[in-house]
Design a protein around this nucleic acid. Structure first.
Lengths: 120, 120
DNA sequence: ATAAGTGTACTAATAAAGATAATACAGTTA
DNA sequence: TAACTGTATTATCTTTATTAGTACACTTAT
């Protein structure tokens, strides 16, 4: 299910994270489906359970999964994931907009840019 | 001119960078005015010239200053600095816009958000 | 009740990256 | 040509990041 690449310079927990992100986005792991337990997966990959736990913790912070102590970790719904992504993008959007407006760029110019990009 | 804070946890070159950014923004160092040489300033602050050089290199990458080998380093014009800031902000603006449009957010909603922010 | 499963928190050891220093090179100016 | 200037390269040291070890707390099924 999960595959680690020895030559990949990225830390193990990052590779684990990416693996699961792909599996969830592709629908291989369905919403609310149980993920492998930290110990089970750690043993399978011959690494420390704590490394898996870190991957899971960060995936939970990014709201890709949710964990229940004693029960397990489960994939979030794709709708939830999409909503979170939009929320984050909207946040940087407003932030960037504020700074641009503050520095003197007109709202008309920003709107023009949006019109331009939606035609691509 | 430059003041280092022993208690500041940030690296020295970061403190040097911030110091000069403030001086340039406040107009204490005028456009095209010569900055202290790497060795001169290093001696004054009792640190290695290479540390100053790193600060200058990064300031140059951010186009806050420009350096000429053999001659010295000089402050960029405030107009140039402002233009660069706008260019960078515009870049993240279009990037964020593209991703939002790609994920299904309508251009109308983005325009509405801009109208909203310009009323603050 | 208890055993075997689950996630989590804390600390320590190790690996990787970052910051600074030392030195040498190359261009400019007087 | 001597005294400046910025820059590149390498090495040392410090800090941070990553992983491992261990213990705790909760859930479920026996």
């Amino acid at each position: 299910m999960i595959q680690l690449n020895q030559r990949d310079p990225r830390p193990i927990y990052e590779q684990v994270k990416e693996n699961f992100k792909n599996l969830i986005f592709q629908g291989v792991i369905r919403p609310d489906e149980k993920m492998p337990s930290v110990r089970e997966l750690a043993q399978k990959l011959s690494i420390n359970p704590n490394t898996i736990q870190r991957a899971y913790r960060e995936l939970e912070q990014e709201e890709m999964i949710y964990s229940i102590p004693g029960k397990g970790s489960f994939a979030a719904s794709v709708h939830m994931i999409r909503d979170n992504e939009i929320r984050d993008l909207m946040h940087t959007f407003t932030q960037t907009t504020d700074r641009l407006l503050g520095i003197g760029v007109s709202k008309e110019e920003l709107i023009r840019k949006i019109e331009e990009r939606s035609k691509l």
